[in-house]
Simulated scan of single mutants.
Amino acid sequence: MSRQSVFAVAFLALVLGMAADASAAVSKRFGSVSIACDEARHCAASVQAANQDKASVVVLQRSPESRARWTVSISTLGVLADRNRPVAVSVDNGVDITLYPGSDYAPFVHPSDYYIVSPAALGRLMLQIQRGHMLRFSFIDIAGKAHTDRFPLDGLADALNEIDRQQGRIPGDRRAGPPEDLPEAPDVDAGAHLSAAGVPPRLLELHLASAACEKPDAADIAAAEPLIAPLGETAMLYVIPCYRSSSGLASRLYTIDRGEIGGINPLLFAGFSDRLGWYGVDVLFDVAYDAASLSLQASGADDNGCAFKAGWTFTDTAFRLDRLSAATSCGDAASGWRDVYPAR
């Protein structure tokens, strides 16, 4: 990486740090826009999104060299956007500028810093944002949830003019281009990232809507951690403790798919007892999952305590039943098992 790009990376980190901390000192402020320049006259104008706590930040940055062009980046500080999906920007609810991954936008330096690299999109956007009042940025995060951030643009034109002045540039030079000499952002292990993030609030809300499930801080399940693991390139498995009984720790299972269709899917499994025959069950006990083989092991029981134990393998979009054994007697007196599927 060249010395110039090292300066640019360090300066962008400073700008984002200032944007994340509203109390941090800035060189100047014009309306909603803050500007900052370092001693080498690398300058940036930043705008924080107005619609969330951990707000995204738009940064327009330019180096002091006479041929340097503006770069435009959006850093999502609260969530991580799915870099394999299109995103959209628009000004004042006008026609969307759709940006496609790779050809129109790409992450540089950090996985959450997305730079617009399309000359056509940059030219159109630079004209619109100087005259507009609100920039909208729409994207889908790596968990498959849609987001829309809105950035107030009041003061932006004055802020860019001030940077022109500080850099000794021709007023109104708004030529923009992709970043030069910046390293591409490292790949993200989406599964590891989502596992570390825990259960999404929207899934926890759905889980607690069931009257049977206790809150996570309930005394008998407080020590039980959710099981979160990948099911493939776009799907994640969430095993969330529900209650504890004599049969063990009961959990409900869900998938979240961040693919084209996507969404949250509560899982239903096949159970068996001599009393009911085959039936559906949405609670399993003592769940174990192996991410390498995509195999699931668990037990279950009907309302009379007629137990079964089974194994499943995830294939494409659902868990396939591999084997199931049913208890030869019900309740605490259960003493043996017989194979039900595959039948012998």
Rank of each mutant, 00 (worst) to 15 (best):
residue 13 A to I: 08
residue 17 G to W: 01
residue 18 M to E: 12
residue 23 S to G: 05
residue 26 V to R: 13
residue 30 F to D: 09
residue 32 S to P: 02
residue 34 S to F: 06
residue 35 I to C: 01
residue 48 Q to S: 14
residue 69 R to D: 08
residue 69 R to H: 08
residue 69 R to F: 04
residue 78 G to E: 08
residue 88 A to G: 01
residue 89 V to F: 03
residue 94 G to Y: 09
residue 111 P to E: 13
residue 116 I to D: 01
residue 117 V to G: 13
residue 119 P to Y: 02
residue 125 L to F: 03
residue 125 L to Q: 03
residue 126 M to C: 04
residue 128 Q to Y: 00
residue 129 I to F: 03
residue 130 Q to I: 06
residue 148 T to F: 00
residue 159 A to G: 10
residue 161 N to D: 07
residue 174 R to Q: 12
residue 177 G to L: 05
residue 179 P to V: 12
residue 180 E to H: 13
residue 184 E to F: 13
residue 193 H to T: 10
residue 201 P to S: 03
residue 204 L to D: 11
residue 206 L to A: 11
residue 218 A to E: 13
residue 220 D to T: 15
residue 225 E to I: 06
residue 228 I to V: 11
residue 229 A to S: 09
residue 231 L to E: 05
residue 233 E to Y: 02
residue 233 E to F: 04
residue 236 M to D: 03
residue 238 Y to N: 06
residue 252 R to Y: 00
residue 257 D to A: 15
residue 258 R to Q: 10
residue 285 F to K: 04
residue 286 D to H: 01
residue 292 A to H: 09
residue 300 G to E: 12
residue 301 A to M: 13
residue 301 A to F: 06
residue 308 F to M: 05
residue 310 A to K: 01
residue 312 W to D: 06
residue 316 D to P: 03
residue 327 A to N: 01
residue 328 T to R: 09
residue 330 C to H: 01
residue 331 G to Y: 07
residue 336 G to S: 14
residue 340 V to W: 12
residue 344 R to A: 14
residue 344 R to C: 02
